[in-house]
């Protein structure tokens, strides 16, 4: 994108006073149009460029960054292991959170007042508790319920197990993250379902399509358009949110980084190690989000926009990206 834009051609009535029309003898196609020069834009761009250059210069030259320490640790086994733990926590909590969230969303949308109330209350409770407070709660579950068992409600118990050995630290972290995530996922899914045009449900009902099939085949794929951008936010938030579980001494990325700088005292480069990994993982998720969104945009546009890769290939082939196809005025029967 350039720093100048072509101004809209002024209509005859908008011509500034005193402007002379071009000599009538000249061929209009030969007349060159000179765009307005935006000197202010150039000055602002230069100022910002200087600031960016200063910042990058500082990153490279300031010895406190200790880039050699960064290089030593960024791919070390401890750190890579920790990244895997972070990824696992994110993946499981995403899947569990969104599964439970979808169930809660449809409970909230159902006509059953009991289900509605329970779903609303769940969201209310779990959005109210800070994640870290909830995590410590689950960590101390053993103090609250020493044993968990299966049996008749309020009656005899057939099978029971010590709660700490059943759940464990990772389990407690996963439950905490998932339950927390489910409250937000429920609202995201509900918002997506509400965004689907009511006529779609009516058409599906008029065709006699079974209820579950209506949801799975008609409603959810269209709701995904509204769900995905926010869900992408949530998953990326969760990825970084997993760093909170360091309070439970789980060997995820942030915890391991702290262990290393606790031992070596190299705080800044180790924080950069964590930062670099979080940025990388977020980038991967963002790219994935782009392609998933594109998949669910099928049918939403007359011609889907090209992917960045397709753009690159077209550039390489020196083929200009075609302008969007205009809506045909006459139809071809």
């Amino acid at each position: 994108m350039g720093l100048t834009t072509d101004p809209a051609p002024p209509g005859p009535l908008l011509a500034p006073p005193g402007t002379q029309p071009p000599p009538p003898t000249e061929d209009p196609a030969e007349l060159r149009v000179v765009p307005v020069r935006h000197y202010g834009r150039w000055a602002a761009a230069a100022a910002v460029a200087v600031l960016v250059a200063q910042f990058v210069h500082g990153l490279v030259t300031n010895p406190v960054w200790e880039w050699h320490v960064f290089a030593d640790y960024v791919l070390s086994e401890t750190i890579v292991q920790a990244v895997l733990v972070t990824l696992q926590l994110t993946a499981y909590a995403t899947v569990l959170g969104f599964l439970l969230g979808t169930v809660l969303a449809f409970m909230r949308l159902s006509r059953n007042p009991v289900l509605q109330t329970v779903a609303w209350s769940y969201v209310w409770v779990f959005r109210s508790i800070p994640m870290i407070v909830q995590l410590v709660f689950w960590f101390n579950l053993g103090a609250l319920y020493r044993e968990l068992g299966v049996g008749i409600p309020f009656g005899p118990v057939f099978w029971s197990v010590d709660s700490n050995s059943l759940i464990g630290t990772i389990g407690a972290a996963l439950i905490g993250l998932s339950l927390h995530q489910a409250a937000y996922a429920a609202e995201i899914v509900r918002g997506g379902v509400l965004s689907v045009d009511h006529g779609q449900l009516e058409a599906a009902a008029a065709l006699g399509i079974p209820r579950l099939r209506q949801i799975r085949r008609i409603v959810l794929p269209q709701a995904m358009r509204a769900i995905l951008p926010t869900a992408g936010n949530e998953i990326i938030g969760l990825l970084k949110g997993t760093s909170v579980v360091y309070v439970m001494a789980i060997g995820e990325l942030f915890y391991q980084v702290q262990v290393v700088y606790g031992r070596t005292g190299r705080v800044i480069p180790m924080l950069m190690v964590a930062t670099a990994w979080y940025v990388l993982l977020t980038t991967v998720l963002s790219v994935a989000q782009f392609y998933v969104e594109r998949r669910y945009a099928r049918g939403a546009d007359r011609t889907p926009p090209p992917t960045p890769l397709q753009r690159l290939r077209r550039l390489a082939a020196a083929q200009p990206v075609p302008p969007p196809v205009p809506r045909p005025l006459k139809e071809q029967p």
């Binding site: 045009d197 006529g199 099928r298």
Partner: peptide
């Protein structure tokens, strides 16, 4: 049933 605004499934 044929609706005024078609209600085809766009996806």
């Amino acid at each position: 049933f044929v609706f005024q605004d078609f209600n085809l499934f766009p996806h």
